[in-house]
Design a protein around this nucleic acid. Structure first.
Length: 421
DNA sequence: GATCCACAGGAAATAGTGGCTT
DNA sequence: AAGCCACTATTTCCTGTGGATC
C-alpha cells in the first residue's frame, strides 16, 4: 500500500477553491460589471478609449472583472473588421519605478505567447536594467507603433510603483507625444485607496477619466460566493453550510476579500479530509471547528511568509522585539529598541545599523502586521511604542525553520521560563 | 508662555551590485 | 576594460511637532 492514495471523500474539484480558478462569471458584482463595461464601450465604438482607474482592496474582484470583460470585449470585437483590439497586461508587483514598468511593458509586447494579432513585434526582449531611460522609451514607442490598432494596457497592482509616476504621465499621452496611429487605453488597478492621492495632479487628470471603486464584500455576498463554489468543489453528501457561513464571516470581518474566504474554506476542506481518512465511515462534514483552525492557519501562513522575506537586519530588529517581549517589557519605544538592537546585532556578528534605519524597519514591520505601533498616551508622552502583534511562538518557529543562524534559543528559553510560550 | 528636547519621518547623498555599450 | 545606467540598502542631514521644563 503506497503512501499516496487517491481519495474522493471530500473534494470533487478542489481547484475550484484556488485563487487561480476563474469562474465563468464573477459573482455578486453585477453593478460593477455594468459600470465597467460602460467605461469600455468606446473601444467597441472605435473611439479613443477612456483611461480607467479601478480601486478597492485585494480579493474583491478587480482583476477577475478585468479579465472577464476584456475577454468578452475581445471576442465581441471580432464582429467588426474596423477595430483591432490588442490587450497587454502587466502585473506591477515588485516593480518599484517607472523604469521597471516601462521595461516590463516592452517585454510584454515582445512576449511571443501573447499573440498580439498583428504580430510585427518580434524583437528580442530587452534587459530590465542597463538601458538608458531615453532608449527605453524609444523602444516602447516603437512597439506601440508596430502593434497599432486599439491597445488596452492593463497595469495591475499599479500602486507598487510608489511615487515615481512618470510612466503614468507619459503613457496616456503617448499618442500625442509620439504622434501614434494606435489608440491607447490605460487601465490602472490599485489595492490602495490612498494611491490616487499620491499621484501628481497631472497624472490624475489623464489616468482617472473613469474611476470605478470595488468595495469589500460583505458577509452575505461572501456567503453567496462560497456557496456557489462549495457546490462545485465538494461532493454532494458533504455538509458545508455552517462552514461556509463561518468562513465568510471571518473574511468579511477581516478584509472582505473573496480570496481570503476561499483560502480558508479550502484549508478547512483539507482538514476535514484528513480527519475523514483517519476515521473511516460516518458522515463527512466540513464543520466550524475546521474553519476555525483553517482561519488560524491561513493567518499564520501570511505572517510567516512575511517574516521569511525579511532582510537580515529586519530579522534582527524583530528578534530584538522578541527579546523585549520575552521580558514582558513591551511595548517599548524606538530609542530603547535601537539600544538593545545594537547588542543583538553584535551578538549575532552583524554591524548594527543607525537609528534612522531601525526606525524604518520598525514601521515596515508594523506595516506587515508583524508588529503594531501602540499609542501609550496614558498620561506621559505619546511617542511611538512597538509591540509584537503575533505570538512569540510563531516567530520562533519561523526563525528556527528557516535556519537563519540567529541566536534565538536564549530568548526562547527566557520566554519559556516566563511561561509565555 | 518661552524654550528645550526627543522623536518621527522626509530628502538627498553614498556605497555596493550588476547589466549594457563601445 | 572603461564608462554609463539603474537598483537596493543605508547613512547623513534636517525639519516639524508636541510634550516637558523652567
Amino acid at each position: 500500500m503506497g503512501r499516496f492514495r487517491r481519495e474522493s471523500h471530500v473534494f470533487r474539484t478542489r481547484d475550484v477553491l484556488r485563487e487561480d480558478y476563474q469562474p465563468e462569471s464573477l459573482e455578486e458584482r453585477g453593478e460593477k460589471l455594468d459600470e465597467y463595461a460602460t467605461a469600455l464601450q468606446p473601444i467597441i465604438d472605435g473611439n479613443q478609449p477612456d483611461n480607467i482607474f479601478l480601486y478597492g482592496p485585494t480579493g474583491v474582484g478587480k482583476t477577475a472583472a478585468t479579465h472577464q470583460l476584456l475577454t468578452e470585449l475581445r471576442s465581441d470585437a471580432q464582429a467588426y473588421d474596423d477595430i483591432d483590439v490588442q490587450l497587454v497586461e502587466l502585473n506591477c508587483t515588485g516593480l518599484t519605478s517607472s523604469y521597471q514598468v516601462a521595461s516590463n511593458l516592452v517585454n510584454e509586447f515582445r512576449n511571443p505567447d501573447h499573440q498580439l494579432t498583428s504580430v510585427e513585434v518580434d524583437r528580442d526582449p530587452i534587459p530590465e536594467t542597463g538601458y538608458p531611460q531615453k532608449r527605453l522609451m524609444r523602444e516602447l514607442r516603437k512597439d506601440l507603433e508596430s502593434v497599432g490598432g486599439t491597445i488596452a494596457i492593463v497595469l495591475d497592482e499599479i500602486d507598487h510603483i510608489g511615487s515615481d509616476d512618470d510612466i503614468l504621465y507619459e503613457l496616456p499621452r503617448a499618442r500625442k507625444t509620439y504622434d501614434l496611429d494606435a489608440k491607447l487605453g490605460i487601465i490602472g488597478i490599485s489595492n490602495d485607496y490612498s494611491f490616487r492621492d499620491q499621484l501628481g495632479a497631472r497624472v490624475i487628470d489623464t489616468l482617472c477619466e473613469e474611476e470605478i471603486t470595488f468595495p469589500p464584500y460583505d458577509a452575505t455576498q461572501l456567503t453567496a460566493i462560497l456557496e456557489k463554489r462549495a457546490e462545485q468543489a465538494f461532493h454532494d453528501d458533504v455538509e458545508t453550510t455552517a462552514a461556509v457561513r463561518l468562513a465568510a464571516a471571518y473574511a468579511a470581518r477581516d478584509r472582505g476579500s473573496a480570496r481570503q474566504a476561499l483560502d480558508i474554506l479550502r484549508k478547512a476542506g483539507d482538514l476535514a479530509k484528513r480527519e475523514a481518512s483517519e476515521n473511516t465511515g460516518g458522515a463527512v462534514a466540513v464543520d466550524e471547528a475546521h474553519v476555525e483552525e483553517a482561519n488560524q492557519l491561513v493567518e499564520q501562513q501570511q505572517v510567516l511568509e512575511g517574516i521569511r522575506s525579511l532582510t537580515q537586519h529586519a530579522k534582527l530588529t524583530l528578534l530584538t522585539i522578541c527579546a523585549i517581549e520575552a521580558r514582558e517589557e513591551s511595548p517599548e519605544r524606538t530609542r530603547v529598541i535601537h539600544d538593545e538592537y545594537q547588542q543583538v546585532a553584535l551578538a549575532n556578528g552583524y554591524d548594527p545599523l543607525k537609528r534612522r534605519r531601525i526606525h524604518d524597519h520598525l514601521s515596515n514591520l508594523d506595516l506587515n502586521g508583524i508588529l503594531s505601533q501602540v499609542d501609550v498616551s496614558n498620561g506621559r508622552g505619546n511617542k511611538n511604542y512597538y509591540e509584537l502583534d503575533i505570538s512569540l511562538e510563531s516567530v520562533f518557529q519561523v526563525f528556527e525553520e528557516t535556519a537563519s543562524e540567529l541566536e534565538v534559543q536564549p530568548i526562547r528559553e527566557h520566554a519559556v521560563r516566563k511561561g509565555l510560550v
